[in-house]
């Protein structure tokens, strides 16, 4: 019983084939690592799954609904309520403070100011960011910014969190800390995660992994005890 699945996706950019016949599925609350070398199409797969890109062929199904059948507006709403995103960097609005950024998805979803900020502020201690609420993005360290991004992705209580190389810009230890924090939090929240990474140690935080190579998904067949 998967919540998010892709069936025979194809996607090309001009003459470059990014995905051909990629299929996968995600179980509720599961952390799935998507691995593969650069340019293998793993980010394209993520963007198709999140409804940011529309695949050329195949279907993406979320909770039984075909994403391609939704309007841009509905997909946007879906991203706001059911999906969360953590990228390598650059996803925070630079002019805003940490707490502003964290409250932004709630405000965009029409939550009133006071409850939105209350909910956002409640995440700071959970993420070990107490006292940094008023900092602007530029005044945060890389690890802190990533933790704010994690909080912002989870503040709306999404069903699926999309993480694309979430520790790609961090050193090993900071990366491990961010990963530990993220995994612990999604476990508590019951959020499923699509974790795109080329880093095996990051992928090792997942429950299982699939590999994208040359636009196709290679799922493991044999499990070794």
């Amino acid at each position: 019983m998967s919540i998010l699945s892709a069936d025979h996706l194809t996607k090309s950019y001009g003459s470059t084939v990014a995905l051909h016949d990629a299929s996968m599925s995600l179980q509720p609350g599961e952390i799935l690592a998507v691995m593969g070398p650069s340019g293998s199409g793993k980010s394209t797969l993520l963007h198709c799954l999140a409804g940011i890109f529309t695949p050329d062929g195949g279907t993406v199904t979320f909770n039984g609904r075909d994403l391609a059948a939704l309007s841009d507006r509905e997909r946007t709403r879906l991203r706001r309520t059911d999906f969360g995103f953590v990228f390598q960097f650059g996803q925070l609005v630079p002019e805003l403070t940490a707490v502003d950024n964290m409250a932004l998805p709630l405000l965009l979803a029409g939550v009133r100011r006071r409850p939105a900020y209350d909910r956002a502020a409640a995440w700071f201690p959970r993420l070990g960011l107490t006292g940094l609420e008023g900092r602007r993005t530029g005044e945060l360290s890389g690890g802190q910014a990533q933790r704010v991004a994690v909080g912002r992705a989870l503040v709306t209580g999404p069903t699926v969190l999309f993480a694309d190389e979430p520790t790609g810009a961090l050193d090993s230890l900071t990366g491990e800390n961010v990963m530990d924090l993220m995994v612990d939090t999604v476990r508590t929240e019951g959020t499923a995660v699509i974790l795109v990474t080329h880093d095996a140690r990051v992928a090792a935080h997942a429950d299982r992994q699939i590999t994208v190579r040359d636009g196709a998904v290679i799922a493991p067949e044999v499990h070794v005890a």
């Binding site: 690592a33 095996a200 140690r201 992928a203 090792a204 935080h205 997942a206 429950d207 992994q209 590999t211 493991p220 067949e221 044999v222 499990h223 070794v224």
Partner: peptide, 11 residues
């Protein structure tokens, strides 16, 4: 297959 085994162990 070896890769999967490695990742399993890493998990």
């Amino acid at each position: 297959t070896q890769r999967d085994a490695h990742l399993e162990r890493m998990r």
